[in-house]
Structures are given as structure tokens and as C-alpha cells.
């Protein structure tokens, strides 16, 4: 059973004659442990696809099964729970809450997953240790470098043991050295067996990944790479 099963996904914006179809008949299967890149020019619909994959948005038509559950018709509360339990987001702009410390930021998804405070702390300390930030627990995001912020974000994404990591240009705001480090972290996670979906327009990064799909004008096409 694939982690992600998309079947004839379409997304309209607006209604009636002025409706704009951003995704057209998108079908995609992602197996467990895959590291897949979604590439495409801006306006090609890749952000919309990512929002649907991340359960932040619902498709207008089509079927989306995440870990075997049809999530395309779920209500807001159920989608929120699925986001919290099954998806780990890593954004280009880190999206850490400035008022919360590093540790509190990482604990956030576990709080909404109703994990007790002690258990949260235990798991988050281990995660921050794994991304090499155990000396920064009490710091606030504004006191950290970009690379450190992104590593905090990755730790937060991993906190709930999600079915899939969903990341959007994770290196976009980083210098090349930090970018490489973050990318290396993703490769390490892939090797540990995690499923990672990365949206990027950087061909260099996409080129290094085992599977690349390309969005073009709302349609999805598989790009076959030799390394796969």
C-alpha cells in the first residue's frame, strides 16, 4: 500500500465561468521510504499540490488516500488531526513561532496530539540532540542562524513520527553551506527509511534525488532519472 495515493485530483479556484483549474487530473503514488521531488515553474500548481498533500487544502475532484485513508472529503477537525499526526511540514521560511523557545516549538505538534508534557520533553530532547541543537533548547528562533532554524523546523516535523515529511524549498532561505547541511540531513532521514516529499524549483537539488515529478500547467509528469 502506498503512503500517498492520488487519483484524478483536480483543484478549481473560483466558481462558475471564472473558475480557474489549477490542478488537472493529477495522479501519483508515493511508496513508503521514497524521497521524491516535485519540480515546476512558479504558477505550475506545485504549491497547490503540496497544500493538498499536506491536508491544508481539499481537492475539488478526485481521491486522495493517505496511508490508506481517504482524506479528500474530511472536515476541518479531522484534517487538522491528520496534519498533526501524519504530516511533518518543513517550510522555506522555517515558520517557527518567535514567542516560543526552540524546545517549545518542537513540542508544538505533540501538544496538539495530546502527548503528556513529560513524554513531549523526552522525545523532543532526543530529536534536538539528533539535529545537533541540544545546546540551544532555551534559545528563541530570533537568536538562531538560518541553518539552525531549519534544523529546529525539521526536528519539529519529526516530532509526531509522521507518515511523510513535506518540505517546500527547505534550502531556499539558506546560504550554500547551511543549505547543503540541511539537504544532507534530509538524505540521512531518507536512509533511515522516512518518506520525504520535497517541492523545489532548484534543478541541482532535484537532480540528486531518486525520483522527480514535474508539474507543468497543472499537469503532472514523471521524469525518469538514470540513478533510480
Amino acid at each position: 500500500m502506498p503512503i500517498v495515493h492520488l487519483e484524478g485530483i483536480e483543484k478549481d479556484y473560483g466558481t462558475g465561468d471564472g473558475a480557474l483549474t489549477v490542478l488537472k487530473d493529477v495522479s501519483l503514488d508515493i511508496e513508503e521510504g521514497e524521497f521524491i521531488a516535485i519540480v515546476g515553474a512558479s504558477g505550475s500548481g506545485k504549491t497547490t499540490l503540496m497544500n493538498i498533500l499536506g491536508c491544508l487544502d481539499r481537492p475539488t475532484r478526485g481521491r486522495y488516500e493517505l496511508s490508506g485513508t481517504d482524506v479528500s472529503k474530511l472536515g476541518d477537525d479531522r484534517l487538522s488531526r491528520i496534519r498533526g499526526k501524519s504530516i511533518g511540514f518543513v517550510f522555506q521560511s522555517f515558520n517557527l513561532i518567535a514567542q516560543l523557545s526552540v524546545l517549545e516549538n518542537v513540542e508544538l505538534p505533540l501538544f496538539y496530539d495530546r502527548v503528556t508534557k513529560a513524554e513531549r520533553r523526552r522525545r523532543c530532547l532526543a530529536l534536538l540532540d539528533a539535529v545537533g541543537l541540544s545546546h540551544r533548547l532555551k534559545h528563541y528562533p530570533t537568536q538562531l542562524s538560518g541553518g539552525e532554524c531549519q534544523r529546529v523546523a525539521i526536528a519539529r516535523a519529526l516530532a509526531v513520527e509522521p507518515a511523510m515529511l513535506l518540505t517546500d524549498e527547505p534550502t531556499g532561505n539558506l546560504d550554500s553551506k547551511n543549505g547543503e547541511e540541511v539537504l544532507k540531513l534530509f538524505h540521512d532521514l531518507h536512509r533511515e527509511g522516512r518518506t520525504i516529499v520535497m517541492v523545489t524549483h532548484n534543478p541541482e537539488i532535484a537532480g540528486g534525488l531518486p525520483r522527480v515529478v514535474e508539474m507543468h500547467d497543472g499537469r503532472l509528469s514523471e521524469r525518469v532519472t538514470e540513478s533510480a
Binding site: G84, L108, P109
Partner: peptide
């Protein structure tokens, strides 16, 4: 607003 978005992405329901 941003904080609200982040919390929602991290699994906060509307009632949270």
C-alpha cells in the same frame, strides 16, 4: 496570523 497558521499546520483544530 502567522503563528495561527503554524499552529494549524501543526495539528491545532479550530477549537484549539
Amino acid at each position: 496570523t502567522k503563528e495561527i497558521g503554524i499552529r494549524r499546520a501543526c495539528g491545532a483544530r479550530r477549537r484549539d
